[in-house]
Design a binder for these strands. Structure first.
Lengths: 292, 292
DNA sequence: TTCACCCGATACCGTCCGCGTATCGTCGCC
DNA sequence: GGCGACGATACGCGGACGGTATCGGGTGAA
């Protein structure tokens, strides 16, 4: 007898229906049936009257229902008391304000469900710092993009996105199916503020050489897009991202893909960071995300 | 967070020592360490201060210890209340009063541990009824020996014991390393009461033909042994059994072995009987019994 | 100071359990 | 009498749990 079985039974008892209870528990009906049956043999009592129209509680089932609700509630209180005694453990996630963002919210949700006792904080970083604060200790784990200077940082790839050039729809290249970097020679680029990670900066500005003076400085995704729309520059970005009206993107064939990664400082992650990385990997692997 | 983890933590908290706690929980130290650590990350709190000399409770650990003991106690009460509401489910085990007996007590103990809500009754049958009451419904499951008339009974073998002849130590054959049934021709046998299963009876009395009149009637193992000791008969029995002073057994080479079996009435067992059969099989398979 | 022991942590592996997909049996209901 | 709904069953797979072997470190004794 464990708390899980009791949770299952409570759900069935309240729904009076295995199928609905299974849906409420985010699972399918067969394992739920088996678990409840196993609980019955474990307790040595018949808890439910099964019928093709649904289920009804037996006397023993009624008793167990009340008791189980009580026990589960007290289990919740136990958890609350412990976290109250220590102050909650926190995990701060850094995200880059781009396509990683939506993944970040989903990931944070999944993590919260798995570690209800942990307080999760999300910090959004701009394009100035691809480590999103890992080095300064502002965040425990980062959901960000390569490439950047990763000395002292461990990186785990989640997905590799091909890179495209972002253009105004009235750009001469806008209709092309694909372009090469050489096609973009002589175009005007934006640049990142001084002090930005040089590997990162070089990558996203097409390794543009020449005078930096007249290149507009951008700090965020929106500033990039604004620069393309109104300052006559072009930009690079992962093809996965959606673009606002007036902009299109064309794949760039000779750029290495940008990898969406989870990263942490140092070699070995703490247990929370390790769990976060595992969840992230699971969420991205089969595209069929485990549970909503 | 489940009750198992809490039980583990309580054991460690009370023993202040992973090794001793593991022993108390009938397991080894590594999985216990892992389970407690996992509980810590689950709750998001450090519960123990580990040191080479042992472990100490942190503040959070102290809180959890009290809460967990409470919760576990209430879980026990839940079980008690449910069984009280329905009357306890019972499983009646029939055993044959021979070597199956000791196995029966161990098995009953294992079954009680696995189904704490089930009342286990053990009924010892004499050699008159190898089904130990299965047909009459006196028992739900039997731990007995073949061969017997098993029409309408499902049988699952646990062990096959070679058969030996039981002799007085001063018997001419007593020193032999092995004998054949033909060596026993002309000897005096005991017999079972009228109405005893004929297959069973024929097997254990060496298929002795001839007048039954002067053959002593036995009902129990002890009566068998007494007959051999004082009535000049010989007997057959599984070699596994221990024998009292004055008796020895010599293997009989041309008799099929007697199989120690678990048996139940009908084709498909109830859940309790099925569980009993599984436990029995597990307990006999690798001779390294799972848990004492 | 060094060696040896003790304790908890880690690595690795086998097994069992639990969940999912697919299918069946059965009881109402139209 | 056929169809639909509900729970039970069969089967394959991945993960969790427990086992054995080993490591790292800290303590205490020679």
């Amino acid at each position: 007898m464990d708390l899980r079985s009791l949770r299952y039974f409570v759900a069935v008892a309240e729904e009076r229906h295995f199928g609905r209870a299974a849906a409420r528990l985010h699972m399918t009906q067969p394992p739920l049936s088996r678990a409840v049956r196993q609980l019955e043999t474990d307790l040595g009592a018949v808890l439910l009257d099964r019928s093709p129209t649904g289920v009804a509680l037996t006397a023993a089932g009624t008793v167990l229902y009340d008791e189980a609700r009580l026990l589960l509630e007290q289990a919740e209180q136990l958890r609350a008391r412990v976290t109250a005694a220590t102050g909650p453990a926190t995990l701060t996630i850094g995200t880059l304000a781009d396509s990683a963002q939506q993944a970040g919210t989903r990931l944070a949700a999944a993590f919260r469900r798995r570690h209800p006792g942990v307080e999760v904080r999300v910090r959004e970083a701009d394009l100035t710092d691809p480590t999103t604060g890992l080095r300064t200790g502002l965040v425990d784990v980062a959901l960000t993009r390569t490439p950047f200077d990763d000395t002292g940082i461990t990186v785990h790839e989640l997905r590799a996105d091909p890179v495209g050039v972002v253009l105004r729809t009235d750009d001469p290249l806008a209709g092309r199916a694909a372009v090469r970097l050489s096609d973009l020679a002589g175009r005007r680029w934006f640049r990142f503020p001084d002090g930005t990670d040089p590997v990162w900066s070089a990558y996203w500005t097409g390794s543009a050489a020449g005078s930096a003076a007249d290149r507009p400085v951008v700090r965020t995704i929106n500033e990039c897009l604004q620069a393309v729309l109104w300052s006559g520059t072009i930009g690079l970005g992962p093809l996965a991202d959606a673009l606002p009206e007036g902009l299109t993107s064309v794949p760039v064939t000779d750029m290495p893909p940008s990898r969406l990664v989870v990263a942490w400082s140092g070699a070995d992650p703490g247990p929370l960071v390790r769990s976060f990385a595992r969840i992230a990997a699971a969420l991205f692997r089969p595209e069929a995300a485990p549970d909503r």
